[in-house]
Design a protein around this nucleic acid. Structure first.
Lengths: 304, 304
DNA sequence: GTCAATTACGTTCTCCGTAAGGATG
DNA sequence: CATCCTTACGGAGAACGTAATTGAC
């Protein structure tokens, strides 16, 4: 037996108006076709659903029983399809994103705002984590995708490079290099550095660099960019940070100088589970995010 | 959009084996037909359910969402149809009957026993009431049908005569008429009567009769046949009762004599709501009941 | 006699299967 | 190059509509 929405609708319609001709009209069928449809339903079910002569139509006891079921089935079907379409058209849904703190602070919120304006029915979630944690969230299927830097076991994911960004030196305005328009790696020799934690993507890119430059390294290791800014502002060292983190260092008591090292750039990746396909909502959010990533971030003026 | 059981099944099958060829086999379709079926589903829904290339098939985010719904819909459909068929084939159901006490005491229980033996899944209910109450139960749709005698406002029902039964005189063995093999109405003149309540069907038939016969009437009015039997056995009067009640009077201390009044018979009716049609189970129960009504009740010997 | 459901019948259209086409690993 | 999904196409059967038939009031 092959119940369909059409047949159930016809059945309920007839049960309600108890009149083949009228029910047929409501179903946009000829009266004859409608009659045959009901006959097929009864034959398939093996039960007469209606008791009828040419003058009267009424539900049989079994038909009455089935009516409740049919109504519920129709409602469930319509609900399911409506829900599906709502998700496809971004009227409903949920998108969860993992992003590096630097992205979570600015690019992602702006993308969220634009997305939410267009699709207020979709729930958005963000996890601001360091790169390892971002990858773990993808692995656990807790997020649709991650915006992060390369991390361990990257091969088990499906990745795409979204952007790579240059580094900047951040130091106190009193630092010898503070007035320079650009600095090179060599010029950093002898500087005392403060670093982000080892598992931060910034650190992982800066490490090989400073190793070659023979810089002094402090033993301080931190997780928050704001902490780093506070340390540097107080003359406890300098640091190299990628472009997207600069919003944290746009302070009167900090100097920011472009690093002249074209080969050193931090890659920002889109990371998904292998074989996974983004939902319509996630794809749209990603597209918006990429727009904001592509255009250079509006630089807040760093007052020196 | 017109969801059907077939399509939902195909969808779930493909979602589970993620392989068109295998899923098609399980649905007893050619691979091509199956592919087209899925394409139609996606087109109707307006959402790609699967992400596929020639090598891999997997659910899209929206497809995964729909999968749960589809499984539930399929289960509900199958459940509904199975339930319907169970009712039609008497594997499930409920039949409620209202019957006069005289029928409820013997004919109906025997019919119930036979029916229950054949269809143990069907719940049976009986209401043993006087005729007015029987009709009221039909009116309230609390019973599928009633087996009763004519009552007030009978015209609003759909009735069929099942049987009409002769009356018998019940009296004490010490009564002057107790040894007779038959009695006529005339011979009852001067007898003191005890009656069932005015709303009992027995009374309603006996009343016009005794009115013509000029019998003495007691003011006692009762509802239970057993009470009547007790009164008569103790010499407090005689009474006329229809055949099916005789099981109550088959006692050593009572005499039962056929009444010679061929025109006086109590009709037993099948009563339903107008336009109503019996369920399969009710129809079967009625058929069995009619069998037992048709064959003369096994007479228990009345010991005089 | 009229209204309404069913049946008859020719037509349309959906759906299926065979076979060719094309993409992916 | 083998696998496997998609497209092409012709045919079978389901479903539809018009029209005639039957049945109830």
């Amino acid at each position: 037996m092959n119940l369909s929405h059409r047949v159930l609708k016809a059945f309920v319609e007839l049960a309600e108006c108890r009149h083949f001709t009228r029910a047929a009209e409501r179903c946009h069928l000829s009266q004859s076709a409608f009659s045959q449809l009901i006959q097929r339903l009864e034959q398939d079910a093996g039960v007469p659903m209606f008791v009828r002569n040419t003058r009267n139509v009424s539900l049989s006891a079994e038909g009455a029983l089935f009516l409740e079921r049919a109504r519920r089935l129709i409602a469930d079907m319509e609900m399911s399809v409506a829900d599906l379409r709502d998700h496809a058209t971004l009227r409903k849904g949920r998108v969860a994103v993992a992003a590096l703190p630097s992205l979570a602070a600015d690019v992602v919120p702006r993308a969220f705002a634009r997305f939410h304006g267009k699709h207020p029915g979709v729930t958005l979630e963000i996890f601001d984590r360091l790169s390892d944690a971002c990858l773990e969230l993808v692995r656990q299927e807790r997020v649709d995708f991650a915006l992060t830097a390369p991390g361990p076991r990257l091969a088990e994911f499906q990745c795409r490079l979204l952007r790579s960004e240059p580094f900047f030196l951040v130091c106190s305005p009193a630092h010898p290099l503070a007035r320079r328009r650009r600095v090179t790696l060599r010029e950093l020799a002898g500087c005392e550095f403060v670093h982000m934690a080892r598992n931060s993507s910034v650190r992982q890119h800066v490490d090989p660099l400073t190793a070659g430059a023979g810089v002094l390294e402090s033993s301080i290791e931190i997780e928050q960019l704001a902490t780093l800014a506070g340390l540097i502002a107080n003359g406890l060292g300098v640091s190299l940070v990628p472009e997207l983190t600069l919003f944290q260092f746009a302070r009167r008591d900090l100097a920011v100088i472009p690093l002249d090292a074209p080969t050193l750039r931090r890659p920002l990746l889109l990371v998904q589970r292998k074989g996974a396909v983004l939902s319509a909502a996630a794809a749209e959010l990603l597209a918006i995010t990429e727009e904001f990533l592509a255009r250079p971030m509006p630089r807040r003026k760093a007052v020196s």
